[in-house]
Simulated scan of single mutants.
Amino acid sequence: MNSIPLEGYLAISTIMFFAGVYGFLSRKNMIMVLISIELMLNAADINFVVFNRLLFPGQLEGFFFTLFAIAIAAAETAVAIAIIINIYRHFKCIYIDENITEMKN
């Protein structure tokens, strides 16, 4: 059984990361920006696992680090969604451009 080459994983991770960067820079909806950040974090997690398998095939440090990164990302997402809900309750809008100008006033 042939395994997927390292370049395949890195290509998928790169595509995911740059899709997240594009979404972060181009979206005006706060939820979509949050999803884009999560996409970038997941691309980094793929790299942790792939390089762990490449450099230390018998050890699990990359896997445990990825599990901790996923747990931290979940906590960060919960806090970010709570902040977005509070912004929506106050301003009745979740679009970044409108909220920034309204917060300045």
Score class of each variant (00 low, 15 high):
17 F>V: 01
61 E>H: 02
30 M>R: 08
82 A>T: 14
77 T>F: 11
73 A>C: 08
14 T>Y: 08
17 F>T: 02
56 F>M: 03
25 L>Q: 12
76 E>R: 14
38 E>L: 10
79 V>D: 02
61 E>Y: 09
101 T>E: 09
44 A>F: 15
97 D>M: 06
10 L>Q: 09
6 L>Y: 00
22 Y>Q: 05
27 R>L: 03
53 R>D: 05
56 F>L: 05
67 L>G: 05
54 L>Q: 09
70 I>W: 02
10 L>F: 10
41 L>T: 15
65 F>V: 06
49 V>S: 08
21 V>I: 14
68 F>G: 11
71 A>I: 08
39 L>H: 10
73 A>H: 00
87 I>M: 13
72 I>C: 10
92 K>V: 04
13 S>I: 06
102 E>M: 02
46 I>D: 01
42 N>K: 11
23 G>S: 05
8 G>P: 04
29 N>A: 09
68 F>I: 14
73 A>D: 00
82 A>Q: 12
35 I>C: 11
36 S>Y: 02
23 G>C: 04
54 L>W: 10
99 N>W: 11
33 V>F: 02
21 V>K: 01
22 Y>M: 12
86 N>K: 13
80 A>M: 15
17 F>E: 06
4 I>M: 15
74 A>R: 08
47 N>A: 11
36 S>D: 01
13 S>L: 06
55 L>I: 06
47 N>F: 06
94 I>E: 09
26 S>W: 07
36 S>M: 03
104 K>Y: 11
24 F>E: 00
